[in-house]
């Protein structure tokens, strides 16, 4: 899959419809058996304060449950947090299920403890960005604001 989110964001931003009437809706979830939810809650708060609608799906979610939440909430983005080391198993599974469900347009972000070597692989699989520990919150906010509609400019705006 070609990278949909080039380093500079102006390209993809400019081909977006100018009539975007709203901030992004973002599902945040912890996938798998990993009880560390401080980081994802801090991110949830930052996105909320930036005017976004954050749906917090919480701990111990299966990939299937996350994808169902994304579908029912009509989310533009899903943010997955993993500190368990299972990211190379669980993240590809979420990406595959999103495609199977016809949700290719939804952008995927990953956070948590992701070894540097794994980042290029995740990006190649279709993850838009990996935001590790120490990422300034405004950086995440700015990225989402530049891509409010997830990965797709062709969404129905009515």
């Amino acid at each position: 899959m070609p990278a949909r989110f080039p380093g500079t964001t102006t390209d993809s931003h400019s081909r977006r419809p100018m009539t975007v009437p709203r901030p992004p809706r973002v599902v945040l979830a912890k996938v798998g058996l990993d009880g560390h939810d401080r980081g994802i809650k801090v991110v949830a708060r930052a996105l909320r304060d930036a005017g976004m609608e954050v749906i917090y799906a919480g701990l111990w979610q299966t990939p299937e449950a996350v994808v169902r939440a994304v579908a029912d909430e009509d989310a533009d983005w899903v943010g997955l947090s993993l500190l368990s080391g299972a990211h190379m198993t669980l993240v590809p599974r979420v990406l595959q299920l999103l495609r199977d469900a016809g949700l290719d347009h939804v952008g995927v972000l990953v956070g948590g403890i992701i070894p540097e070597d794994d980042v290029p692989q995740l990006l190649a699989l279709g993850v838009a960005r990996v935001f590790g520990p120490g990422t300034p919150l405004p950086e995440i906010v700015a990225f989402l604001n530049q891509h409010p509609l997830g990965g797709d400019a062709e969404r129905c705006l009515g």
């Binding site: 708060r45 954050v54 749906i55 029912d72």
Partner: peptide
């Protein structure tokens, strides 16, 4: 609730509901 200041919202209700996919259940926040 939606923030009166930023317009943002943290929607945390479905967190307390069954999360396994079930075609007979639809939850929107």
């Amino acid at each position: 609730p939606q923030s009166p200041l930023s317009g943002g919202a943290l929607l945390g209700d479905r967190f307390r509901m069954p999360s396994q996919p079930d075609d007979g259940v639809f939850i929107r926040s």
